[in-house]
Computed example of a mutant assay.
Amino acid sequence: MGKNSIKTYSTETFRHKFMKPEQELDTILKSDYGKFFIVRVEEMIQLIKLPVPPTRATTHSLIYLTEGEAIMTIGSETFTMYKDECLFVPAGQIFSFSNADVNKGYLCNFHNDFFVGKFGKKDLLKDFEFLTVWGNCHVALDSRTSYYVGHLLQRILEDYAANGLKHTNIIQPYFIAALCEIARVYQPLSSNKKDQSVKIANKFKELLFSKIKTIHLVNEYASLLNITPNHLNKVVKRITGKSPAKWINEILVMEAKVLLYQTDIPIREVAAEIGIFDQSYFSRLFKKYEGVTPLQFRKMIEIS
């Protein structure tokens, strides 16, 4: 395959491959299907094994509902979405959900490389803040925008189900148009995107996702941002509602949950993998945020 060649499959082939037996969702998303696919939400829920424990997204996902509701945890926050709303899971983010909610809509999974081609380029991603780990991943659409997005996704699904990505020159611009429609009504987490404090808070969250396994101290993040720890504390608490220390601890616990689910390595190695070398401290930290010890959490996963 060429450098920008993306392998995919029709909806029917996708359903046949994964319907029996049920698959772990991360198995699907890390396969070739993770390059690009679109499927109806009501069909996707039949393909996966529930509950879906904390799982790291390796590509971007978009969920758009036309009926019903859905509950999903993205990062450390739990969202409930309804008709005419979108949820994005940016690449690198951790997500989970447990219920087979009654709903209809579309789920699209896509790699950054999908934007590279005749009608797109990676620079286009800068226009889509909802695809960043610090952006607002929950977007409510007005009726007009929802109408356009629904029709665009339906058009993509029809061509994709029949031809895969044979007609990329049709699918890519339609998909870019759908994201542009969503971006038009997107509301950032802060009303003033140019505010220096917002930039600091966003950069802090971005650093967390790249440095969390090696840097756990607020003063070290402050140093990377060339500001004082006190200033970082004030800014992050004002913009996000949580202190930098709480952000650090929550993401450490999320990273641990992914390892507890996806591996069978001993608890002490899970702790070491995220940069904590005192197992008793790790267990206390984990129980503080999850209400159970790491060992109890792992047993709960095995039972489910």
Rank of each mutant, 00 (worst) to 15 (best):
K7F: 10
T8L: 10
E12S: 01
T13R: 10
H16W: 15
H16A: 11
K17R: 07
M19T: 08
E24F: 11
E24S: 09
L29Q: 02
L29Y: 00
K30L: 08
S31L: 07
S31Q: 08
S31P: 10
S31I: 08
D32H: 09
K35C: 04
V41Q: 07
V41M: 11
L47P: 03
L47E: 09
I48E: 04
K49Y: 04
T59D: 08
H60N: 14
S61P: 08
L62T: 06
Y64D: 01
Y64F: 12
E69A: 06
E69Y: 10
E69F: 15
E69M: 13
A70S: 12
G75P: 05
K83N: 03
P90N: 09
G92Q: 01
S96K: 10
S98E: 14
S98D: 13
N99P: 07
V102G: 11
V102E: 12
K104L: 00
K104N: 05
K104D: 04
Y106G: 05
N112F: 14
F115K: 14
K118F: 02
D123C: 12
L124H: 12
D127P: 07
T132I: 11
T132K: 06
W134T: 14
N136E: 12
C137M: 12
L141G: 00
S143K: 10
T145G: 10
S146I: 05
S146K: 00
Y147K: 07
Y147I: 06
G150Y: 05
G150W: 04
L153A: 06
L157H: 04
Y160D: 13
N163W: 14
L165A: 14
I171H: 15
F175T: 06
F175N: 05
L179A: 07
E181G: 15
I182C: 14
V185E: 02
L189S: 15
L189N: 09
L189C: 15
N192M: 06
K194F: 13
K199C: 09
I200W: 05
I200T: 09
E206M: 15
L208I: 07
I212R: 03
H216K: 12
V218Y: 01
N219D: 13
E220N: 09
Y221A: 02
L224C: 09
L225K: 06
N226K: 12
N226M: 13
I227V: 09
N230Q: 07
L232Q: 00
N233D: 02
K234M: 01
K234H: 00
V236M: 02
I239L: 06
S243C: 03
S243H: 01
N249H: 11
M254V: 08
L260F: 07
Q262H: 14
T263M: 08
T263I: 03
I265H: 01
P266N: 04
I267H: 06
R268S: 13
A272C: 10
E273R: 06
I274K: 11
S283P: 12
L285E: 07
K287V: 00
L295K: 13
L295I: 13
L295A: 13
Q296N: 02
K299T: 15
M300R: 09
E302Q: 10
